[in-house]
């Protein structure tokens, strides 16, 4: 199939080529057998915390309404380095509007899905993605990429729910099997809730949760990025 993929690749838009290329460069820099996660010390690693508001919970059918992302480096959330886009909709479900409050024709400036995905891919680069129940958000973005006839996201990802459970003390075993919504997670970590159900607001809350969790995991100050991925 090699020649097929070759022609495919030639047709890729430039942002996608750059995206893929960045991973190749990263790999050649660290060496083939080395773990790319070891490349930078923890306090210099950029994490992209993101959240998608969608028209529903079916990642195959539902569409992205907005993408919000913030970044953290060394336990700081940077507002300059943040991302928030609202998307133009073909598919719109009025029944979810009461959760996220985004109307089909809202007051925000909106971009096409293609434009949004392009910007998002450029924003994240090769960095580690973090989110609450991130599997869904990644699936949604992957579906959007598929509609553009592109591949899937290649970034490593971390789920704040799974990370949080590593903090739960073994004496409270029964709590480990519990599921945590973002609200419950914020409550457990004593984070004030505001701007729930805007993608950027959720991303921001998730970022604070991520920082708090990492801070507790890093009590002896020797945490490496790859330790976060350990099961």
């Amino acid at each position: 199939m090699a020649f097929f993929s070759k022609t495919d690749k030639d047709q890729y838009p430039s942002f996608w080529k750059e995206y893929l290329n960045a991973f190749n460069i990263q790999k050649t820099k660290t060496g083939f057998f080395a773990n790319v996660l070891d490349a930078k010390p923890f306090n210099q690693t950029r994490f992209v915390i993101f959240d998608c508001e969608t028209t529903g919970l079916d990642y195959k059918e539902d569409r992205i309404l907005s993408i919000g992302a913030v970044t953290t480096i060394d336990n700081k959330v940077s507002i300059t380095d943040s991302f928030e886009l609202f998307l133009k909709q073909d598919l719109y479900k009025p029944e979810t509007a009461k959760i996220h409050g985004i109307l089909k024709e809202g007051t925000f400036t909106k971009v096409t899905e293609k434009e949004a995905v392009t910007q998002f891919i450029q924003f994240i680069g090769t960095d580690v993605l973090v989110g609450h129940h991130i599997g869904f958000d990644i699936a949604v973005v992957n579906t959007a990429l598929k509609r553009l006839h592109l591949g899937v996201l290649k970034n490593k990802s971390l789920d704040t729910e799974i990370l949080y459970k590593r903090l739960v003390h073994p004496v409270n075993k029964t709590l480990q099997d519990r599921r945590y919504s973002l609200d419950q997670l914020a409550e457990a970590l004593k984070i004030p809730l505001q701007d729930r159900h805007t993608s950027a607001g959720d991303a921001f809350i998730t970022a604070l949760a991520f920082i708090k969790i990492v801070h507790r995991l890093n009590s002896d100050n020797s945490l490496r990025v790859k330790d976060l991925f350990r099961r």
Binding site: V70, I79, S82, E84, F86, F108, T109, D195, A200, F204
Partner: peptide, 10 residues
């Protein structure tokens, strides 16, 4: 670009 968080800080 929309910036909800900057608004929140504001």
């Amino acid at each position: 670009m929309q910036n909800t968080i900057a608004h929140r800080i504001y």
